[in-house]
Every structure is written in C-alpha cells, then in structure tokens.
Amino acid sequence: MTGYERVKESEKYYHINATGETHTDFEDNDNFNNDLYSNANYYSDETVAENNARAEILMRQLRRFAVENNERELDWKNKRLGEYEICFDYDGNELFINDYSSIRMFGQIYFTSEEIAKQAIEEFESELIWYFTEYCDHVVEDNKIVKCGCELCSNGNLANVGINDNRIALLGGNNRPEKEQKLKYCPNCGRKLEE
C-alpha cells in the first residue's frame, strides 16, 4: 500500500480541494472520481493526502514569494548570474542556500539572490523544516503498522544499518572519532527521529 491506490466501489478515499483542504469522497467510478485519479489527486490514505496538501501549499507560497521578490528574470544561460535554492543538510540538520548558475532541477523554486532566499527561509522556516524532516509522500508499512518514513527508520532505530542508538561519530582531526552526536533525522529519508 502506498496511499495512492484506487479504492473499491463505495469505499472512502481522499482528495485535496482548491484551498488545500483534504476532503473525503466515496468511489463510484464516475467522471469526478476518474478525473481526480488521473490527475493524481486521489488518495487511499488520509495522512498521505494531508501531507501532500500541506507540502503543495508550501510550494505555492514559495513560488509566489519568489515571483513577487525576485529582482530579475531567471536566466539559465547566463552563468555569471546565480540562481539560488533552499536546501537541507541532513548531516548538519540545517537549512542552507545553494547557488546554481546553469543547472535547473525539476520542481525546484529559485531565487535571484541569496538575500531573497534568506528572506524566504525566515518567512517559511517552520514549514520548510517540516517539509525536509517530517514530510512523507507515501505510506510505509512495517509489521502491519502504517508509518511515514523509510524502511530503515520507520521504527525509530537505525541499528539495523550499523547506527547504534541513533548515534553517529563526529570526526575530528585526521578523521578520528572525536565525539558522538545523537541523530535528529534519518540519514536515508530525513524523517525526524524520536527524541
């Protein structure tokens, strides 16, 4: 189960309306159901629908922020001009800004200056942290308990991949372990781990 399956007739499913709210409907194989399914706005899992609705609102808000605040048109052919994006570093557990001059990635929102990207981080920081550390776009089944996250961290313990007690060694000089730090986020999928 992924959260995107088509449900059986008369069963409940979820979709996102124009204002970003999650709604419940029942499958009856009519044009409305078919249109929602073919446009990938049809969810068999409520949590996946709610997560996607929240993520889509954030993307629209960031897109509008960029358009309203960028000081020029984005120019992907001029390598002297930087185009900036918001990223998350899972090793350092922090947001950062990356500069691209000639590479454009699918679905990414770009800003014309580092300062504008910083303003976007300030305005949307809590939602950005949620997006990078907790957002999950599918269902992960583990021992019949449905959780978001990857298979490595869905139980909150990464010992099965050699990370004991959710701790990693921080390296000092000569790449020797200096101290240990408890992981806040899964290094595989970014899900926030239990404290």
Rank of each mutant, 00 (worst) to 15 (best):
R64L: 13
N93K: 06
E141A: 03
I86A: 04
V161Y: 15
E27I: 13
C87Y: 12
F32G: 11
K144L: 05
T47G: 08
F106V: 12
N157A: 03
E27H: 13
Y14V: 01
E71V: 07
I116R: 01
K118T: 11
R80G: 14
T22G: 02
W130K: 07
A40T: 05
L170Y: 02
V140W: 06
G82L: 03
G172D: 03
E73L: 06
D99L: 05
N143G: 08
R167Q: 15
S102L: 11
K192M: 10
C150L: 06
D35K: 11
L158N: 01
L158M: 01
E125G: 00
E27K: 10
K77W: 13
I103T: 07
C186N: 04
E94G: 08
R54K: 15
F26Q: 10
K182Q: 15
P177S: 02
H15Q: 00
R63V: 09
E73Y: 06
E195V: 09
L74E: 14
E134I: 05
Y90S: 10
L58Q: 11
R60F: 08
N188R: 09
E125K: 11
N174M: 11
A117T: 10
F26R: 12
Y100N: 11
G3K: 05
N166L: 09
I116S: 03
D137Q: 01
V161C: 15
D28V: 00
Q119E: 15
E123Q: 13
A117E: 03
K8A: 14
E94D: 10
S10E: 15
I16G: 00
S102V: 14
M105P: 07
